[in-house]
Amino acid sequence: MSEARTQILATIRGSLKRGSLPAEGQAALDQRLGQPRSGPIPARSQLDPVARIDLFVGEAERVDATVDRVAGAAEIPTAIATYLAGRNLPGIIKMAPDPALRAIPWSENTALSVTEGPGVGDDMVSVTTAFAGVAETGTLVLLSGPEAPTTLNFVPDTHIVVIDAGCIAGTYEQVWTEIRAAVGGPLPRTVNWITGPSRTADIEQTLLLGAHGPRRLHIVVVENRDPENG
């Protein structure tokens, strides 16, 4: 099919009334690609850290996610067990094999049953971390990898995401900068932006949650407050 490639590129150049880009044109593109420029940044996300976390929570709730704010990692198991019990959901969790999640004392105060692996057919509840949050729209940013199978974000009925409050940025652009710095090479295989639980309005424009992805998205924001002064 390289014949198709040659012909398509030739037709494009013919329509643009030029040949291949000259060297200086290529250099300009290299520069544009090498130093990505941000477009206009909405003012609403330019806030101090406290207000930014509040905006993130408010926007996430606006799109039907539920949010729990906990003082520290030690509170996560109880918070999740309480959330599940309150909705009559089983305390059986499929967890991402993530060191940060493994460090959580799951069985100290709860009867949660925790296994690890990718999302499979009968998983009801998954727990993952997020790389970042975007306050502008209450969006979570998740990166795939050996410690973060992407199917956990889509297969189970309930997706619980644990995020450090310090990882909540104002805008998507800030998160791209952080991802580039963190991975230092090609992007992770998938970068998932998740803004609320799955939904559809395909039947008579009636908005319904839980189309093919999770019916519920629950976000646990870990504020790392000093529990005494929090």
């Binding site: 926007e59 799109v63 094999p97 692996g117 990718p118 999302g119 502008e136 729209t137 969006t139 795939s144 990898g145 050996p146 199978p149 992407t150 199917t151 090609p186 992007l187 992770p188 295989r189 998938t190 970068v191 998932n192 932006w193 998740i194 803004t195 609320g196 639980p197 799955s198 939904r199 992805g213």
Partner: peptide
């Protein structure tokens, strides 16, 4: 404001990946 799922996918499963 934003669709629910915006996915940036870059290539097939990487070494060590459990899915994809």
């Amino acid at each position: 404001e934003m669709s629910v799922y915006t996915t940036f996918s870059s290539g097939p499963r990487r070494p060590g990946d459990l899915d994809g």
